[in-house]
Amino acid sequence: MSDLRVEKGETVLLLGESGSGKSTLLSLICGTILPDRGIVRVAGTDLTALGGGARDTFRAEQIGVIFQQFNLLPFGTVADNILLPLCFARTRRMRTGDGPAAVAALCQALGLPPDVPAMKASALSVGQQQRVAIARALIGRPPLIIADEPTSALDADSQGAFLDLLFEQAVGHGMSLVMVSHDQRISDRFDRVMRMEDIARMSRGHK
C-alpha cells in the first residue's frame, strides 16, 4: 500500500463498516501487529524494522490514542489517566515538563473544571470522559493522534462538540489525525476521507 500516506498535520478519516479491517489498520500503524509484507512507516521510522519493545516505546512517544469507549482507567484519577502515556515515553515526558501543570493546562483548554484532575475517572460524566480521553492523547504533543471510532456512541450534538475540541487541540498544534469511523456525516471536517474498501482494493492491486 505505498499509496496510503498521511502528511504531517493532515486529518484523515477512514470510513468502513464493522469487520472491514479498520482496527487492524490502526494496530498496524501503532505497531502492535506487523504486516506479513511491506513496511509501516510512522514519523519517518520503519516500524517493521523495530523490535517489540522498541515499537511499544515508539508508540508511547509518537502516537496518542483515543478509544471508542474512551477507556479511562476507572480506579485512577483524571491526572493519572492523562499522565499515563508519559510513564512509557521519556522524550514525551521531558517535552511535557511539569506533568501536573500540563494536565491543568490541558483540562482548562478542554473546558474541564479545575478540580477534575484530582477526581476519580469513574466519577466523570460521559462528556468529561471524552475530554479526558482527548487530553490523554494530546499530552506531550505526539505527532500522530489515532482515534478509533470515538464518536460512535455519542449523539449528534455531543459528536459535534467532541470533534470541535479534538480538531481545535490536535490540528491547532500541528498533529496528524487518523480517525476511523463508519459515520459518513463527519467526512467534511477532514482533509481526506478514505474508504476501507478502496484501501483493500489498493492492497489487492499490489499483490
Binding site: G53, D56, R59, N71, L73, P85, C87, F88, A89
Partner: peptide, 16 residues
C-alpha cells in the same frame, strides 16, 4: 483485559 489493553495502547510493553 480492557485495563491491560489501555496500558498497551499507552505504550506499556507486555513485560510491563
Amino acid at each position: 483485559r480492557r485495563e491491560m489493553a489501555i496500558f498497551r495502547a499507552m505504550g506499556a510493553r507486555p513485560i510491563t
